[in-house]
Design a protein around this nucleic acid. Sequence first.
DNA 1: CGCGGGTTTGATGATGCTCAAGCCCGGTGG
DNA 2: CCACCGGGCTTGAGCATCATCAAACCCGCG
Lengths: 204, 204
Amino acid sequence: MSKSFNLNLDKEIGLNENSIKANIVKHIKLTDSEWDIFFSLLDNKTYNKGEFVLKPGEVCNFHGFILSGFLRTYFLDKKEHEINLVFHTEDWWFADIASFVSEAPSKLNIVAMEDTVVFIISRENLEILFEKIPKFERFFRILNQRTFAALMGRYIDEIATPAKDRYFKFIEMRPTILNRVSLQHIASFLGMTKEYLSKIRSDK
Amino acid sequence: MSKSFNLNLDKEIGLNENSIKANIVKHIKLTDSEWDIFFSLLDNKTYNKGEFVLKPGEVCNFHGFILSGFLRTYFLDKKEHEINLVFHTEDWWFADIASFVSEAPSKLNIVAMEDTVVFIISRENLEILFEKIPKFERFFRILNQRTFAALMGRYIDEIATPAKDRYFKFIEMRPTILNRVSLQHIASFLGMTKEYLSKIRSDK
DNA sequence: CGCGGGTTTGATGATGCTCAAGCCCGGTGG
DNA sequence: CCACCGGGCTTGAGCATCATCAAACCCGCG
């Protein structure tokens, strides 16, 4: 490949690196050589719309960061209904933490809802990263804390807020998601059936 | 004070220190002088039954570890009903993480259900700890990860499991709690009214 | 034009809540 | 020793929320 042919690609990777850099410098500062180490431990992956990042039964041996696109995490209940847990968009870390920590088979599906570009860091590389740059322990501590706080908020909402209010809260909090995903997925995310959501929406 | 006079007290503190040490060494190894630093940053506190560790409106500026006793974390819904989120027993780290990270007023109550002895580490001392012994970043990263995984499990259960099954699962998973707390608190913890739990129990 | 995914509508029914009453039982005081 | 109290637990009738199932609708697309 000629240099000029590669130019656009290089630019794009540069953009990607800046996006994850911006995410990380919010909590820790690194030197240039530390950044080099960090990026050497990442894999760049692309998932086409409909492709699976993780399937039940697999062990989640990675953490991921979304550069562009849109992932959906869900599981199947006893009646084989899909229950959506998270919609992950750009600038978002994701993993099945339960499977990651226990090294047990995941119960979750993570699927690409759009063509999606991610950085992946494997369990092994993550351990190397912690060893070489302990500051990343801090970064992931803070990340985990915030993710935990967010989940706790959702948990409380789910318990304390009736379905109707959850929907109106959702369109207020995450308006852009509305255009990127079908209503049935939003219904499932909000803990109700698509039929019931439809009734809520037509009520006013 | 004479040495012999202090002996019992020392023994007791020794016991407490061993309990939190055992909890920590599961994930990180410290030298004796690091342990000294660690313990110098802790406060030992006792809460009598009924006393509050945290009230809504206060900012949670600490993490705590339970040496003995029993705490309950709950919030009030719109109808002023208490909704139990966690029962914390011995060997358990606790905090309102959401309030801790955002430094916003807590929405939660944490109350002692029995006389309870805890170690408290303040936000300031926690930062000092991270600075002096970065290994603790790792410890709390792992702790947060596991807490997150546990909450995710509960969240999925709450969504995917009917009330009846949640109760039978609970008595199987946490049988000792049954004797330490009234049924109405268990009902609230399991996301149902005390009346409904009562019917579940009498059904079989 | 017909197909198919997504959405809506309506009838029916289950799950679990509300409210009110009564029960059980240990503690306290006369 | 009994009477009464109060907290926790139970019971029952009626009801709200939300799920299920089946049918129809809408609309872009081949």
